[in-house]
Write a protein that binds this DNA or RNA. Structure first.
Lengths: 333, 333
DNA sequence: ATGAAAGCGCTAACAA
DNA sequence: TTGTTAGCGCTTTCAT
């Protein structure tokens, strides 16, 4: 690379000061006489000098870059989190290295290691399920890590979420109150703690509160996708459920469309409440009632928490729970 | 930072070789006796040595990192491109620094500069509209740049797109052939070259081919959003159009829903063809016919092109045009 | 096949 | 307020 490599040394020479002084003005160190500062700034401008962040990183041991591990940016849920993360990162002068993992254990570990090799100052991790191995890496790492919209059963690192259990309980309750005696629970893999532990327990809580018995036949494990939702019709119909709490919007709209395509009226004959209140829920006809998670904020707060961690500030509480809402739209009575 | 900083020097000492040799085995340089290599690898493993990419970057002047400037990751269109970019980047051992610009000139320039300061090996830029200033930065930069799904009128940098003009012509033609005498053209800002030059001209081409006169009253400039689509009803109804080619899926579904909510049957009384064939088009009822752009591939090919540029390989053609399709679904007869 | 040594461009004591 | 001088951890000639 024969980049017009203007270095701090060139500036120092032209301005007839030392590198240290140039470094000081570049870094806003107050210990510089205004006249000197002015002179240096002029030269910087004239030479079009741009500090080399890599050299700076090596010398200072800080890269002002954080790693973001995400299952899939093209998934609306995670993309919203990512946007929140980047905005706050920018606000605090960080950049993000974004890496897709597909939720795959090997890739997650791989990418975490390359991020650490790149000396990121911190990491934000998103994933449905934290495997033993990734948690091992986390506990081994000296670099601050925060989970966004993801659960670590033993909370060794920071995290930002909503209360999935309570939210699911609320949704289920609403469906029960409106007269449904068989409410289905439709989620992604129950192996994922958010589904198998928090949401499912919230669902059970609601049943218990209403003296209804838990029936495994009403629990449906599915992939998170529109197509999977479409294909759910037969199984759900077979269960005689008349309502469902669904853990994913694509899934929910898929189910909704398969229902209405078969002539079953929503919400008349079947009610649905989904979980992310994404644009999908507004576009569907009828629109879909939903728990509303502050996705952008979850990302933003996670990044904010990470800045504190990177700064070695004291943290009041490293597991943050943000509020949710229940938005009633067209898919509930 | 008191990271357990194991350096190449530690490895060299433990393995009783020189730093240079360690560097060779780490970098897969063949000039190392197998026995030596083995010994070094053992020590690396034992010490859990991980090369510092920042130091490597400073010494080699390559960071294996590329910058990606994107208007908004939480927009499905760009998120798809981003996913394609990252997958190919990973394939070629690059990481991406992702930065949202909101299509804002100042932010774009800002972020481009910090990316260059971070010594990225290349940049992928996405944006609706290349301002003079950003194009100035591009031409000044020695770092390879490729546009993905974006048009630079004077093609100074590489780019990957579809033929928006031809695609829009096809879509318009289809609508005309099916009997519509007033076909609306609904896009984002006409200031953006993709809309104002390519798409609009494709629309005009189709009119001309069919001996129809161009009527400005049928051209609607709008924001790219679902909500904007919903609000389009009055204006569109007023124009007496009976069909529309729309440049954005959210916009299209918004229009569709506002139409059906008002009791206008689609496609019976109004036909729609949109542009990105995203999941939105399948979820809507009726589903929306669409031009199908290979978004993931546009991103992937852009990144592939960038790898060639970074590698100083010869490029056959730096403006790549990928094929599109016209997918007929429920919103056309 | 291996080693010695000079940087890469910057920060951060430490002096002055 | 300013300068001197070590590094930061690695790659890369150039010797050997």
């Amino acid at each position: 690379m024969e980049k017009q490599t203007i270095t701090i040394y060139d500036v120092a020479r032209e301005a007839a000061v030392s590198m240290a002084t140039v470094s000081r003005v570049v870094n806003g160190n107050p210990n510089v006489k205004p006249a000197t500062r002015k002179k240096v700034l002029e030269v910087i401008d004239r030479l079009d000098y741009r500090p080399n962040a890599v050299a700076r990183g090596l010398a200072s041991k800080k890269t002002t870059t954080v790693g973001v591990i995400i299952p899939d940016v093209s998934n609306a849920y995670f993309a919203s989190l990512a946007r929140g993360i980047d905005d706050v990162a920018t606000m605090y002068k960080y950049n993000i290295i974004l890496a897709n993992s597909d939720g795959d254990d090997k890739k997650e570990i791989n990418v975490l290691n390359t991020l650490l090799a790149k000396q990121v100052d911190g990491v934000i991790f998103m994933g449905h399920h934290l495997t033993e191995s990734i948690r091992g890496e986390f506990s081994r790492s000296k670099t601050p890590i925060v989970l966004a919209g993801s659960i670590d059963p033993d909370q060794q690192v920071g995290s930002v979420n909503i209360d999935y259990r309570e939210a699911t309980k609320d949704a289920t309750n609403k469906l029960i109150k409106s007269g449904n005696e068989k409410v289905a629970f439709i989620s992604g893999p129950l192996l994922d703690p958010i589904n198998g532990q928090l949401r499912l327990n919230g669902y059970k809580d609601a049943l218990k509160e209403n003296n209804m018995t838990y029936n495994e036949g009403l629990v449906f494990e599915s992939e998170y996708s529109y197509k999977a939702g479409l294909n759910l019709y037969d199984r759900v119909a077979h269960s005689n459920a008349t309502a469902a709490v669904v853990a994913d919007d694509e899934l929910a709209v898929g189910l909704l469309n398969s229902l209405t395509d078969k002539g079953i009226s929503v919400p008349g004959e079947f009610e649905i409440i989904t979980s992310n209140n994404s644009l999908f829920t507004d576009m569907a006809r009828p629109s879909v009632s939903s728990i509303s998670q502050p996705l952008y904020d979850i990302g933003a707060v996670a990044m904010r928490l990470l800045t504190k961690l990177m700064n070695k500030e004291d943290i009041e509480e490293k597991s943050v729970i943000l509020p949710y809402d229940l938005i009633e739209k067209g898919s509930t009575k």
